[in-house]
């Protein structure tokens, strides 16, 4: 960990109007939760739908994508990363610091609001809120390193991440059960499924398979990112 790199990364992520973009997504979830609660639409079916489709299915991957790629992608693109890489700091430290910043942002803007929305919608019924909080947490820990590694590997990281999160996980996951097995979203839902007694939560992957896969995604993403950053060369812009 390096405090200077962390501070610079926070400034790049939250400076000017960028914090608003990060804030808008969870705010929408919370507003929806409050409105549903106020109008009495917060039965368990709807609540699980909101938490599953909106919190775990949309906001978590989007924020992990924005934060995970945003901490390192733009710097690699415009070559500014050279000023960091030429300092006598191990590249491992550079990547892990940026990863930690990204993870903290995802925690603040996706996991905590998701947990709050769960509490607003369901209270303590059947442990749904803590279960989804745990699912969001493990999901964040798996998505963020994968997307950060992707940003070190490719300039099209955001688009590739979108293709994976939206087309592979959401569209194919619904039609082809095989695609669901290779999906962070389903692994995270498996954790939620194991923690709650509500029958509405259902994952296509068993917990015993999901936990090692989540670990592999988190550690593998970080390791791949470090390996690639070690031998990174900067080519011309675009």
């Amino acid at each position: 960990m390096n405090a200077t790199i962390a501070a610079m990364t926070y400034r790049a992520m939250l400076g000017r109007r960028r914090a608003l973009l990060l804030l808008a997504l969870p705010l929408l979830l919370l507003v929806l939760a409050v409105v549903l609660r106020a109008t009495g639409g917060d039965d368990l079916d709807t609540s699980v739908q909101v938490l599953e489709k909106l919190a775990v299915g949309t906001i978590l991957p989007l924020l992990a994508l924005i934060a995970g790629t945003g901490v390192i992608g733009p710097e690699i693109d415009d070559g500014q990363i050279m000023y960091v890489l030429t300092k006598p700091i191990p590249r491992r430290t550079v990547l892990l610091t940026k990863l930690a910043v990204a993870l903290s942002l995802v925690l603040a803007f996706a996991v905590v609001p998701g947990l709050l929305a769960g509490l607003i919608l369901t209270g303590t019924t059947a442990n749904v809120a803590p279960a989804f909080g745990a699912a969001l947490l493990v999901g964040a820990c798996a998505y963020t390193p994968v997307f950060t590694a992707l940003a070190v590997f490719s300039r099209n990281a955001v688009t590739i991440g979108l293709l994976y999160a939206l087309i592979w996980e959401s569209l194919l996951g619904n039609f082809a059960p095989g695609a669901g097995a290779a999906s962070v979203q389903q692994w995270a839902l498996a954790v939620a499924d194991a923690l709650t007694s509500a029958s509405q939560v259902d994952a296509t992957v068993k917990l015993a398979a999901a936990v090692p896969l989540l670990l592999a995604a988190a550690l593998g993403g970080a390791a791949l990112g470090i390996t690639r950053l070690r031998s990174l060369t900067i080519t011309g812009a675009e």
Binding site: R18, T58, D77, D78
Partner: peptide, 20 residues
């Protein structure tokens, strides 16, 4: 949102979240 990466994310967030 001219910063690279953020533009992509902002556009997709508008379309995806409004639809969802």
């Amino acid at each position: 949102t001219p910063r690279r990466g953020f533009g992509v994310a902002a556009v997709i967030a508008v379309f995806l979240l409004s639809s969802a």
